[in-house]
Amino acid sequence: MKKLILLFITLFLVTGCYNYHDLNELGIASSILIDYTDQFEVTVEILEDEKSETYKGSGKTLDNAFNNIILGTERDLYYNHLDAIILTENVNVKDIISYFMRNPEVNNTFYLVITETTDIYKEDKFGKTLSNILKRDNMSNFFDITQTLFEENQDMAIPYLNRQLKIESIAAYDEQSIAFNLSLEEIDIYKLLTNNTGSNIVTSYEGENVEIKVNEITTKYKLNDEIKIAIELEASLVEIDQTIDTSNLDTIAKIEESLNKEIVKQTATFIDKLKYTKSDILGIDKMLYNKFHNLLKTFEDYNYEIEVKTHINKKGLLLK
C-alpha cells in the first residue's frame, strides 16, 4: 500500500510537467532580425518541416516585441537551436547581447551579424545558410563576441551583411559604434593577426599573381618600447601562372619572400587604419595592460615592427 501511495504521488509530482511543451507547439527559432526605429522591430524565422516561415512583432522592449509575435501564433518561441541573430546598426548591441545572455534557453554557439538591410528573408532557411557561411569562414560566434563586448580594453568585431546578402566585411567597433568596415583583404590580415586560419593572400611574382591559402598560423606579440608582431604561417599554393616553375626550390623561396613582404605591407596598412579609427579589435590594449599593469600608453601610441615567415608546404597535385 505504501509503495502504491508513493507511486501515485510520484506520478503527479515527478513528471516536470509544469514546463511541458509539445514539440508541435514550439516555434524553433533559426534566426532573428532585430531593428530599432522608435520601437523594437523583430522578425523571427521559425523552422518548419522542410522550409521556414517568418513572423514579425514590435514593442517598446525586446521582450515585448517577442511577446507580440506569440500573439499571432499558437506556438512558444524556442531559442535553443538559434543559428544567427542579425542586428541593424540602429540597435544597441550590448543591450541585445545582455538580453540573450540572461535567457537560460539560448545556446551560445550561434552567430551574430550586423546588417545593412532589413530585407533579408528572401530564401528559405536563411539563418541556417548564414550560420554555415560564417562557420566555414571561421568567424566569431556569439560567445566570442560576448567576451570582447565586456572587455574594457578591446573593441568588438562583428561580421557585416551587405545589401547583396553577402558577408564581405566585418564591422570594427570603437566602443559602442562602428568605426569602419574591414574589406575582404583586411579580413584576411585580421585572421592572421588573431591566429585564425583560412586566409587567402595574393602577391605578385614576376608580374603574375600568386595566391596561397593559410593552413597553420602562429602570431605572437612582443610588447616593449615598440610592439613586435611575429607571424609564422604554413600555406598551400592554390593558384600560380603555369610559366613559373614551382619545382625549383629557388622559385619557392622567392615566392615566400614576396609573400612575406606583401603580408608585412598589408599588416602595416591595417594597423595604421586601426590606429587612425581608434578601433582596438586585436585587443592590444588588453595585452599592454596585462604586461605593464597600466595603460599610460595605448595601442595608438606604439610603433609596430612586423616580421613574417611564410612556409609553403603544399602545392597540390601538380609538380610545377
Binding site: 508513493l6 504521488i9 510520484t10 509530482l13 515527478v14 516536470g16 509544469y18 514546463n19 537560460p104 534557453e105
Partner: peptide, 17 residues
C-alpha cells in the same frame, strides 16, 4: 536551468520525497 516556469516549492517536493 531546467524548470524555469515551475514554482520553486514544486521543484523541491520530488527532491524531498
Amino acid at each position: 536551468m531546467y524548470l524555469t516556469e515551475m514554482p520553486k516549492l514544486l521543484v523541491g517536493i520530488p527532491i524531498i520525497l
